[in-house]
């Protein structure tokens, strides 16, 4: 006998209300990628080590591979897809990553950009050390992090001159 434990949830994803039927143990990343087709969020390890799956839940950066999907009921979720401006324009953080050489293979980039947005939401003028502390959960194997840290400083400077992350 199979018992149906699934439940209906509704939550805000990138500004739109979404409904989905989820299992109690379902991971948020699977809901986002496999059910809702938002594949910008990446899975690099499935155990909360690499941060490629980072999304914002109520403005806080979380690993969507560890986050239970049912827990987003009634909450606001933002993924990399929700960060672009009008007409798919790059946000200041995305533009800074692109211009600053902070993306190489690109697989860590969505998570890295999302973590940066969370950081700048809390600390609009982070020092290099603040940035390194905030991004310690996002692994990048390509860059050595130098151009990432510089890009984030450049984005912060642009944002403090006016604009939204």
């Amino acid at each position: 006998m199979t018992i149906d434990n699934s439940m209906q949830i509704s939550f805000e994803l990138n500004g739109s209300m979404r409904r989905a039927r989820v299992e109690p143990h379902e991971r948020l990343i699977d809901l986002l990628r496999d059910v809702l087709g938002e594949t910008g969020t990446k899975e690099g390890c499935g155990e909360g080590e690499c941060g490629a799956c980072t999304v914002l839940v109520e403005g806080r950066a979380v690993n969507s591979c560890l986050f239970p999907a049912p827990e987003v009921e009634g909450l606001r979720v933002v993924t990399i897809e929700g960060l672009c401006g009008e007409g798919l324009q790059l946000s200041p953080v995305q533009a800074a990553f692109l211009e600053g050489g902070a993306t190489q293979c690109g697989f860590c980039t969505p998570g890295m950009v999302v973590s940066t947005v969370a950081l700048l939401g809390e600390n609009p003028a982070p020092s290099a050390s603040d940035i390194r502390n905030a991004l310690t959960g996002n692994l990048c194997r390509c860059t050595g992090y130098v151009q990432i840290v510089e890009a984030i400083q450049s984005a912060a400077a642009k944002l403090s001159a006016g604009g939204e992350a």
Binding site: R33, E38, T39, G40, T41, K42, E43, T79, I80, E81, L83, C84, L88, L90, Q94, A95, F97, L98, E99, T103, G106, F107, T109, P110, V113
Partner: peptide
């Protein structure tokens, strides 16, 4: 130069193998 494939990478639109099943 800006990386030609860079805009897709920073917006999550780049299609890695698991993104396009």
């Amino acid at each position: 130069l800006r990386r030609p494939e860079g805009p897709d990478k920073v917006t999550g639109r780049a299609m890695y193998v698991a993104d396009d099943v």
